[in-house]
Structure formats: C-alpha cells, structure tokens
Amino acid sequence: MVHHIVGAVFVLIGALFLFLGALGIVRMPDLYNRMQTGTKATTLGNVLTMLGLGIMHPAWLLKLTLIALFVLFTNPISSHALARAAHRVGVPMTPLTVKDTLKDKKPVVKEAEV
C-alpha cells in the first residue's frame, strides 16, 4: 500500500507543475516567454506524473515510459518549429526584451496575421 501513496504524491507534484505551466502561459507577456513556461515547465510535470503512475501500478510502467519518452522527444521539436515560424512572420517580442540577435541576421518577412 505504501507504494500507492508514494506514487500518488509524485502524481500530485506532477499535476502542480502542469498547473504552473498553464499559469505561465496566462501570466507571461509575449509568445516566446509563454512558450518557455508553457510547453516546457510541463515536461517535468508530465514525466513526474508518468513516474508516479508507474510506481502505483508497475505493470503499466513500460507504456508510461514510452509516453514520457514521446513527450521528451517531440516537445522540443514542436516548440522550436512554432518559435521559428513566429519569429519569421514577426510576432512581436515584449518591451522587456534586452537583445535579439536573430533579427539582425535575417530580415523579418511580414506575412499573414499569425
């Protein structure tokens, strides 16, 4: 029974990280910072939840590991693709931004409202 409680605590901490990720996308001032907090503070939440569920129910561990690995491999790719596309079409950065070396390198093409 103890492993049930330990696993459930992991799931709870994971859920808290997921919540923080969602809070981040509401609070952060521009797209890029939302991406920082939103799509990536949630990776640890994801992995912790899967780990907790695996502790609670070891028979599922293999599949839960696969889901966690899937998130770890695809998440950076989709957030990178989204960030690059957003920068190319000129989604504005917050006034807090201190530096943008990418902008100096390439002219920003303004296209549709994305």
């Binding site: 799931v11 996308i25 939103g38 949630t42 939840t49 609670m56 889901i67 989204l82």
Partner: peptide, 26 residues
C-alpha cells in the same frame, strides 16, 4: 492574441491532458 499564441495554448492543453488521461485511466 494571435494564432501563434493560440497554438501554444493548444500545445499546453495537450501536454496537461495527456498525463491526466493516464491518471484517470489508473
């Protein structure tokens, strides 16, 4: 405000829903 921010929100929605689905499955 723009489609890009909505896409991020959708991505986060998935990332939260996936582990919650697994937790509900258990």
């Amino acid at each position: 405000p723009r489609a890009a921010s909505r896409a991020v929100a959708l991505d986060v929605l998935t990332l939260i829903t996936m582990p919650m689905m697994a937790a509900y499955g258990l």
